[in-house]
Design a protein around this nucleic acid. Structure first.
Lengths: 146, 146
DNA sequence: GTATATGCAAAGGTTTTGCACAGCC
DNA sequence: GGCTGTGCAAAACCTTTGCATATAC
């Protein structure tokens, strides 16, 4: 019944290999992050981590998020509501967000490939379309006539 | 020597036509905005307006920015540093920003046309590429080898 | 005179920082 | 035992809001 390898282990190992220490807070934060799919807002994360380990301070959350970004586990992106973190592996997609109703969707990087090519063709610039969302109007908000 | 028509006039006229009142603060804010090209951050704007009319409160700045956005004079976009306003007419471009060195450039909407088409073809979604910047690596930061 | 705009002060929210102590290794 | 990580408290920002007063019309 023992979990021989849960999703947190590889990340914890990575941190350990970097000479970092394993504290209960860090374990709890990593565990909560690994259990989360999609967007991770620092505030929400803090709330959920405290459900596991009461008393974890917000500054610890922020410091750990920075750390995990340095170690390549997380990335952050900018959405209408502000900054948001996501698993680097999972986050390889382009956020689409409707400015009218808040509807959200995503393009896979594969789907976005043509976009990237178009931009890099135009300028000496390699776009990372995952970093900022793309705002716009979704099908419903654009109007039923079309 | 009298300015028969300075750039502020049309905007002030627009506000007046909307039944709004012309206060010295509003004049100063509009004048400063019309004299600004490119990005307008609320904080910077406040500083510059106070140089013209001392004592203008930050809340007045924010209220006026909202107003000008409602009237279609300004739009806001999201860059790495946070929210930023720009002239709606002038701002019809896609911000490119280098995540490494901060270099900034822009694509005209004409140049971005193909991007928009590509996205709307993929989904029932009309993108507004001006609203969020596009992050990436500029030519220099991408490496001299290519 | 009246409705609107402003200033002021406070609050709200997120994120950062300095410092002393706790605790991992 | 030494150094790192955490909590705490405070501060730094940015932005919003309620209310009384000032003022444009």
């Amino acid at each position: 019944m023992q979990a021989t390898s849960n999703p947190s282990d590889s990340v914890l190992g990575l941190l350990k290999a970097g000479g970092l220490r394993m504290t209960p807070q860090r374990r709890a934060i990593v565990a909560e992050i690994m259990a989360t799919k999609g967007h991770i807002s620092p505030t929400d994360l803090a709330r959920r981590v405290r459900a596991r380990v009461p008393g974890v301070n917000a500054s610890t959350i922020y410091r750990t998020l920075d750390l995990l970004e340095e170690y390549g586990v997380l990335s952050h992106a900018h959405l209408e509501a502000g900054a948001e973190y996501h698993h680097r592996a999972e986050g390889r997609h382009v956020h689409l967000t409707c400015s009218n109703c808040g509807w959200e969707d995503a393009l896979s990087l594969q789907e976005a490939g043509a976009l990237q090519k178009l931009i890099s063709k135009h300028r000496a610039f390699s776009p990372d379309l995952t970093h900022f969302a793309i705002s716009g109007l979704c099908g419903s908000c654009r109007g039923p006539s079309r």
